[in-house]
Design a protein around this nucleic acid. Structure first.
Lengths: 207, 207, 207, 207
DNA sequence: TATGAATGAGATTTCATTCAT
DNA sequence: AATGAATGAAATCTCATTCAT
């Protein structure tokens, strides 16, 4: 990579990071492109070399940050010395992610306000930035590691993701209707039940 | 009520209805106060006599519309000639509400994008507009009509509300990851399980 | 007219006059709306209350200024104590207009660069500002004052207007290919010949 | 000519042609240098190697295209087997040029909006691109081919050029105030009269 | 010669809010 | 209570030009 290329990447990175910081601290609508470029130390026009508008950089940030969070959780899941079963793996990932978000509330605010199942699915299945996680593969691997078969694994994941993300938003940020540690057992119990009731009971996956 | 009072109410109503129509068609951020007042047929300054700003009218709309939806569902629940049990009542309400939202997608978009547990709770427990539903009372009445006791009824309701609202958004508007009729059994199964696992098993409520 | 109305007219007038001054001194493309409002002493948003954009105010100015010039010429034509014939009237008007433009070269530049037969016709036949001249009526009156009939009075006028306006631009502003006093006899001769050759020779208008 | 020279010429040509296409389709002010270079397939900086700015390339285009039109007309005039007199030659050229413009309206728009007697004279008398026509010589040759003398041949040409170009703009593009075929007799009659009245009547050119 | 990323001034436009009427 | 002209800060976005490679 030449000096120019490297410089180019630096400007984009700077815009990306600055935008994230401002979106998470001031909020999307109160952050102007002027704010971003001036704090990023680049010229206004430069922004438009890399991003179409504020919503373009927002979407790219949501995808990227979502991926990062999952990647960290998945990495730590890999590091475990014991072999957890499917339910344990899912709960592990959720707990990891919740803890990340709990210790980074502005990140939670940003992602939750701007996340949709569409963006999320897109982020996980076709990461735009090389290095971003392909969560689909992780999930399939997890499904394969269990002997159970599920009615519809995608719907199951969807319900879990939505339940977790929407309830955690309120719990972590406002302690409503309970604080996080009090709420976790309820959540994990619900997640466990969703998985249980999605198992196709009568037949084990042949192995 | 005198003519003046009635006129006054008319202006507020007109602003309220127009704002709702514009928010649901153009979206919040693309609707300006100019748009609202010009379509409502009142002067700019008049807006500020009734609402603090765009977010004030937004919140009032969300509360009001949420209440309306619950009210309709609760009314129809009352009309049933048989006496459904607690789980059936909950599922009935959910199904009713989902069907309302499915036939009014712009309303769904508006509420979903702007709803938070806080606003919701506020809407249901301290209705700002006389006639808006006090859902808290309905819920308590439902709890009292069953012999079971629950670990934490508020958390239980919270989980159900969040699971339903966040998944239905995607399902109804984008048919993702499944279409509504396909998804309903999964959802109602999950809701049922949440209720089941929140029951305090060992003791029936005395009474 | 109330105080508000009068104020309103003042702002519009100020913008109108300032825009004209800047367009004629700096040119259209080098004049920004910022320039106009700051020199007019009104807020930027006020511009957009009265005009759609720079081209809107430009067109309105061209129409208005063209009308003004014709109006002055027509007024002085009326004041003559002798009764000139048709050709003399036309030449009188042309000479009057040329002299006005010669003593106001920036006005000439502005109008010539932005005038088209379409705008011109529109300006003269449907003046947007009350008081602007309806030249069509003047021309018809002139036609009626002569005993001659013309093949196509509109084409005749068109040719005269275009010949005069396009050649005068170069002659007045650049003395090319000759200076004004040297050029006038050629021009008036040509105009005279256009009129002559458009007369329907064989029959006089009855009267 | 080496390969490099040829390459160099190619870039310039590409810019020249692309600019013309964009100027005639989108108009001058809506065409940016970015547009030109990106469609021409060269880098931004390259533009500035060949042209000072947008107005420089515009002027060179007007000159070049005007020359081309006259060249075609003059070539066909030469091919005639009979020997037309001076008036016939002028009318022939005008008719030829008008027909070219009528079948290429975007070219007409471009030239008419940007032509001035100065640029025109410059174009015809000192062609910047080798091969561009030196119209001055053609005109002088035509003048010499007749026995008449004219008061001021340059003024005469000027009037004819301006009358033709300004009226044809409106007639060809907008059929105003008449369509082309209806208008031609009026125009050629006027041109004929301009020539007639510029003849010095009392003496033939000695020869 | 040729490139094209970067610049940054400045253009247009929007809009929440005020306030005199 | 109601108006709506006026405000002007601030937003988005453009684009001619430069300059290091």
């Amino acid at each position: 990579m030449g000096k120019l290329d490297s410089n180019k990447k630096q400007k984009r990175e700077s815009l990306f990071n600055t935008a994230f910081r401002l979106f998470t601290t001031k909020g999307l609508s109160k952050t102007s492109i002027s704010d971003i470029v001036s704090e990023a130390g680049v010229a206004k026009g430069t922004f438009y070399l890399y991003f179409k508008d504020k919503y373009d950089i927002r979407n790219k940030l949501v995808s990227h940050k979502s991926s990062e969070i999952f990647l960290k959780a998945a990495e730590d899941l890999d590091k475990l010395d014991h072999e957890p079963n499917f339910e344990e793996q899912i709960i592990f990932l959720i707990d990891h992610i919740i803890n990340q978000l709990n210790s980074n509330k502005s990140l939670l605010t940003f992602i939750a306000k701007n996340l949709s199942w569409g963006i999320f699915k897109n982020a996980l299945t076709s990461p735009s930035i090389s290095g971003d996680l392909n969560f689909k593969e992780v999930y399939i691997k997890m499904l394969n590691s269990t002997d159970y078969k599920f009615k519809d694994p995608e719907i199951m994941l969807f319900m879990i993701v939505e339940l977790v993300s929407s309830t955690c938003y309120s719990v972590i940020l406002y302690n409503e209707p309970a604080d996080l540690e009090e709420y976790k057992p309820y959540l994990y119990d619900a997640v466990y039940n969703i998985i249980e009731s999605n198992k196709i009971k009568t037949e084990l996956k042949e192995g």
